[in-house]
């Protein structure tokens, strides 16, 4: 068992999500950056889809009742094992009774903490992920709280591994390749690509809101042709333009349908980068085509393969 001594700001159990239930209104969810979660699992010898903890801005303090192998990836969170500073992005073996304290994220926004054997909460609709809107999955469908106890699955001993530093740094690159969306136009995409955007405070797993630096919401955005859009299916990585002028970059927990114009779509390989943007971060978009988006996905798979050093 893992005992939660302090939960951190918002820590949830996640795996690679539950695709297949969108028709019931259930988003796929899962780790907000699947690349980082997969890397954390590989560091401790888990399969990619093992459940782990996703921490936000400030990490949790947890005690391990049994000896465990752990690794945490991304966010450059302050970290200590039984009071001694410890480095992220590599496997650590903990003795029974050890306490791991994750602190503030010094870079990025989120961190994934994997434990060999995975967090063994029950599977619901094919996943152990926490669905905060539906209030199910993970631990009772909610973020961790002090006093929670998390079961850990059995695991064979695996050799220690570490992330190649270049791979770790590449997780949070604040640049996003865009393909056109169903409500986009050349002008709408040009406007997105011109200059920097700033992450607003009202951002979470459902969506990252961005606005123009210094300009609040920026100019009001009018849908070409005008009129109300009929609600339609949406995807994580969709770039929506509400009339207020800001843009919303949909996250993994975004509702499965939405009514704002969907002007562009972030390349699938780069949607996970949204997880690393704290309020105030700056980001840029660039236009790519579907073939380039596919190449980026294949390249990312190769980089993950090469990025876990054992």
């Amino acid at each position: 068992m893992i005992v939660v001594l302090a939960p951190g700001l918002l820590t949830t159990v996640q795996d690679l999500g539950r695709p297949g239930w969108r028709a019931a209104g259930v988003p796929a969810g899962g780790a907000m950056d699947p690349w980082a979660a997969r890397a954390a699992n590989r560091l401790v010898g888990n399969p990619d889809g093992a459940a782990l903890l996703e921490a936000t801005l400030t990490g949790p303090v947890v005690r391990f009742e049994r000896a465990a192998a752990v690794a945490w990836v991304a966010g450059d969170m302050e970290a200590a094992i039984d009071g001694a500073p410890a480095a992220g992005e590599r496997m650590h073996r903990l003795a029974a009774g050890a306490t791991l304290a994750l602190g503030r994220a010094r870079r990025g926004a989120r961190c994934w903490l994997a434990v060999a054997g995975g967090i063994d909460v029950p599977e619901l609709l094919g996943s152990r992920s926490t669905d905060l809107a539906g209030r199910f999955g993970g631990l009772e469908g909610r973020p961790l709280a002090a006093g929670d106890r998390l079961p850990v699955g059995g695991a064979a001993e695996s050799p220690p591994r570490a992330l190649e530093p270049g791979f770790a740094r590449s997780l949070g690159v604040p640049r996003f390749g865009l393909v056109p969306g169903p409500d986009g136009s050349a002008e709408a995409i040009e406007e997105l690509v011109a200059g920097e955007w700033l992450v607003a405070a009202r951002s979470d797993r459902r969506g990252v809101r961005v606005e123009r630096p210094g300009g609040g919401g920026g100019s009001r955005w009018e849908r070409p042709g005008g009129g109300e859009l009929r609600s339609q299916g949406t995807l994580p990585g969709a770039v929506q333009r509400p009339p207020s002028g800001e843009a919303i970059l949909l996250g993994v927990d975004a509702p499965v349908t939405g009514g704002y114009p969907w002007v562009a779509q972030i390349a699938a390989a780069e949607v996970g980068r949204l997880a690393h943007l704290p309020p105030g971060a700056r980001l840029r978009f660039e236009v790519i085509d579907f073939e380039e988006a596919d190449r980026r996905w294949a390249r990312r798979e190769r980089e993950l393969e090469l990025g876990v050093l054992g």
Partner: peptide
């Protein structure tokens, strides 16, 4: 899988080849 909307359908085929 697919998502019904208000007079539209989104089809998501994540495993498909081009």
């Amino acid at each position: 899988e697919w998502v019904l909307g208000a007079g539209n359908v989104l089809i998501v085929c994540d495993g498909a080849t081009p």
